[in-house]
Amino acid sequence: MRSPWLRWLILPLVVVPVGWLLFTGLGRDPRLIPSPLIGKPMPAFVGTTLDGDQFSSADLGGKPAIVNFWASYCIPSCVDEHPVLLDLAARHGDDLAMVGVLVSDTPDGARGFLARYGEVSWPSMLNSDGQISIDYGVTGPPETFFVDAEGIVVARHVGPLTAAVVARELAVLGLKP
C-alpha cells in the first residue's frame, strides 16, 4: 500500500508550479524585458530636428544624457511625463544632455503638443524613417534611455517618467537627484 501523504503531495506538486507560471507570466508586461543595449555604447544617430537643425549623438558633448522617445499621440503617458522632463531640464540643464526622438509622429503633431504642454529647451529628432527607434529597440512611446558620460547605456525606462524614476536613474549617472 502506498503512503497516503504521497497522494496529497502530488497535487500541490503539479498545481502550484503551473499556477505560479500562469499568474506570474500573464501579469508580466513583455515590454519590460531588459534591453540588450544596457552596458553597451549608445547607438549613434544623426538627422534633422523638429527645428530643422542637424543634430547627432556626438553633439551630446560627453555629458550624461537621456534619450527620450515620445509622440504627440502618446496620451496620457507623454503628457504625464512632460512636466518631469521640463523639471529635469530646469535643474540639470548644465550637467545633463537631453534629446527627444519622435516615434512615428508628424512634425506638426509634435509642434502642437509642445505648444500645448510646454516648449522644451532640448532638440527632438524627427526620426522620419524610424531608424533611431529600431537602433534602440523601442517598443512604443514613451521610452527613455539613460546614458553615462562615456556614452554607455545604463538604463531603459518603459512608460512615463516619474520623479522617483528620474531620481533613481540620476543617482546611477552620478548626478544629484
Partner: peptide, 11 residues
C-alpha cells in the same frame, strides 16, 4: 500596418 513594422520591413 504600423509605422514601426513598416520601418522594419524596409530595413
Amino acid at each position: 500596418e504600423t509605422a514601426a513594422a513598416a520601418a522594419i520591413r524596409r530595413q
